[in-house]
Simulated scan of single mutants.
Amino acid sequence: MSKASEKLADYEAMLRDNGMRITRPRQVILRILSETDDHPDAMEIFSRAQEVDPAISLSTVYRTMKLLEEKGAIHRHAFEGGRARFEQAGGGHHDHLIDIDTGDVVEFHSRKIEALQDEIARELGYEIVHHRLELYGRKRRKS
C-alpha cells in the first residue's frame, strides 16, 4: 500500500470514527489531500476537487478541512499576506520559507537553527515546547 493510500485510509477512518459518512465529495477531497505534497488553500482544494466532480461544494471542502484540522490530521497555516493553507500532519518537524513573489512554500529543517533556538531558550531559563518558524523571501537574481 502506498503512502498516499495509507493516508487516505487514515482520513476515512477518522471521519467514520467521528460519525461522518464517506460521501463521494468527501472521498475526492480526502484523496486530493492524501496525494498532495504542496500547501493548498481551501480554494485550491475546491478547484482540484471540481476537476474530478463538479458537484462538490465549497462548503463541503470547508467542513471537511475543519474537522480534519480539529482532529489533528492536517495543519492549517496562516502565512502572512495570504489565505490559510493546509498540509498533512506528521512527517516530522520542519519550518517554512514562503516565496513572496510566487506564494510557493518551501519546507526545510535545519539542525543549526533548532540548536540555536534551544540554546537561546536555555539561556533565558526556558524549555521550548512548541515553535513555528516562517521565513519570507524571494529568489536571488543571478548576476
Rank of each mutant, 00 (worst) to 15 (best):
E70L: 10
L97I: 08
E51G: 12
D53E: 10
F86D: 03
K66Y: 09
T60S: 05
R83L: 08
Q50C: 11
A73D: 12
T60F: 01
L67E: 00
T102P: 10
T23P: 02
R26L: 03
G90Y: 03
L67K: 13
E12R: 08
G72K: 08
H39R: 12
A55T: 12
D17H: 08
M65S: 05
H75P: 04
V28R: 01
F79S: 04
H75I: 15
F79N: 08
P54G: 08
T23M: 01
R21K: 13
R24S: 07
D101C: 12
I29F: 00
R16Q: 13
E51Y: 11
A49S: 09
I29T: 02
A13P: 00
H93M: 14
D53R: 06
F86P: 05
D101K: 14
E51T: 06
E70Y: 06
P40F: 10
T36K: 10
D37M: 12
L58G: 11
T102I: 11
M65K: 02
F46R: 01
A89D: 13
I32T: 11
H75M: 15
F46S: 00
A9V: 02
H96A: 07
A55N: 09
I98Q: 05
Q27G: 06
F79R: 03
A84N: 05
D95R: 08
D99I: 07
R16D: 06
E87P: 10
S34T: 07
E69G: 06
P54L: 09
G103Q: 09
I74D: 07
K71Q: 15
R24G: 06
V28C: 00
H94I: 05
I22L: 07
T23W: 02
M65C: 06
P54Y: 04
R31G: 12
K71I: 07
A49K: 00
K66Q: 15
L58P: 02
S47R: 15
R85P: 04
T60R: 00
E70R: 13
R48F: 11
R76P: 00
Q50D: 08
I22F: 01
K66W: 05
A49G: 13
N18G: 03
T60L: 01
M14A: 15
R16A: 12
L58M: 15
R85F: 02
F86V: 09
D95W: 10
R26E: 01
G82A: 14
S34A: 15
S34V: 06
K66P: 03
G103T: 09
T23N: 04
T64C: 13
R83P: 14
A9F: 01
G92L: 14
A78M: 14
R63G: 07
G19V: 00
H96L: 05
D95G: 05
R85T: 13
A89C: 10
I74L: 10
H93Y: 14
P25N: 06
I56R: 02
A42D: 12
